[in-house]
Write a protein that binds this DNA or RNA. Sequence first.
DNA 1: TATCATTGTTTCATTATGGAACAATGATAA
DNA 2: TTATCATTGTTCCATAATGAAACAATGATA
Lengths: 237, 237
Amino acid sequence: MEFEKKTMDIENYIPHLSIDCVIFGFHGEQLKVLLPKVKRLDTWTLPGGYVLKSEDLEEAAQRILEERTGLKDIYLEQFYTFGKAKRSTGEMMKKMLLVNDFEIDESSWIFQRFVSIGYYALVDFSKVVTKTGVYDEFCEWYDIHQLPNLAFDHAEIIQKALETLRYMLDDKLVGLNLLPETFTMKELQILYQTILDKPLRRDNFQRKILSMGILERIEKKFTGAAHKAPYLYKFIK
Amino acid sequence: MEFEKKTMDIENYIPHLSIDCVIFGFHGEQLKVLLPKVKRLDTWTLPGGYVLKSEDLEEAAQRILEERTGLKDIYLEQFYTFGKAKRSTGEMMKKMLLVNDFEIDESSWIFQRFVSIGYYALVDFSKVVTKTGVYDEFCEWYDIHQLPNLAFDHAEIIQKALETLRYMLDDKLVGLNLLPETFTMKELQILYQTILDKPLRRDNFQRKILSMGILERIEKKFTGAAHKAPYLYKFIK
DNA sequence: TATCATTGTTTCATTATGGAACAATGATAA
DNA sequence: TTATCATTGTTCCATAATGAAACAATGATA
């Protein structure tokens, strides 16, 4: 139970290497990231893990994501590898592991320097069933404008993920992965505005998106509100 | 001499991790990459190396580049991390090292799986004095359209570097790093055409580049040819 | 002085973008 | 039934960016 010492099969992993995932979701007009809280510490981390010795990097990232979200075949992009010698401190790792009853040799590579490969994932918020990992007290969504206290350089990693997402926005079908099957033009516009963090004109946005020929117009959506009903759209497969 | 066994201080490096550099240069209307040939094998590799345990990734890349080109403070961009489990084979490493009289324990991580962080560098071709590394027979420039036989997944790494360079072309001042101090508009245009691998219109190219306000027009360049002399330009500091 | 290849610039048409206005519509209230 | 209202879909026009062609300038050579 809680008083037993826990171990990790550390020797199965490539030493000094980790993967950190920035999981983006969209809900309530906010762009959010999924962050687990470290047990017994006022600290959050990115959902991450290590790479098995015979595993592709991308497989490892998918495995880590599935553990946290319950979803398979998640949309993933590798965006940067973080490798400053002092980016992670053994002190923090010791706190995180030892305070939580892990029994790991203090000389292990896990308390030394880490190179971490950053992936960002785009998921349909409504489909995610968050799962709590072994280090975690809980795992929750946080608005990118109101992030909790993050360990290591994880705030910087989120920032870089966000910059990459913005840079790629016109080339990757971000909406396809962050929105549910069908959505209104307004919802898509708010998503873009939220990612770019700036207002867009309704008319120009609609024209531009429709001219790309990637959306199919479905039936109208009647919400019962006292105004014209918007169309629903879905991405053309 | 050649008959002594050579050793490497392998334990100073982070295991299973390497850096591969795609060094771009521009000469004779061709985009080129600098590639060392492996001694005694009909094989070329990317100039690469390992990361010291207390070294930043970027420091390691700069160190590797300086060893090969003699240049300091080279323009560098990290573009992707290659991590398929089967991307490198121990067989090839054994050939490369053992055939060249290195004495390394066959169980070393150096013969196992590698994750490699890709950096591309942009250098002024005329300033590079290529140096031959310990594995190498020689180190030469190759046109990106006529690459020699490359080990591992290094052809794929070059391809990805090139794609990234193209994607970033409008945002990064590529010319600043690939061209000498001064150059003509035609030279700059040929550089862009070569990178993009498509022709550009002379008039539109000139208008667009000049409208960016990053070039300063210097004196004319008289080559002795029977036509109007072009202006020289340099990048505004 | 005429020729020629190349360079620098101007001009015009086409397309993309920014901004405003107008028409359509689905519910509610008079 | 009809007027009201918020929101949505569309059209229109001005401006900016881009594509394409033509023209003028120039430095050497014949």
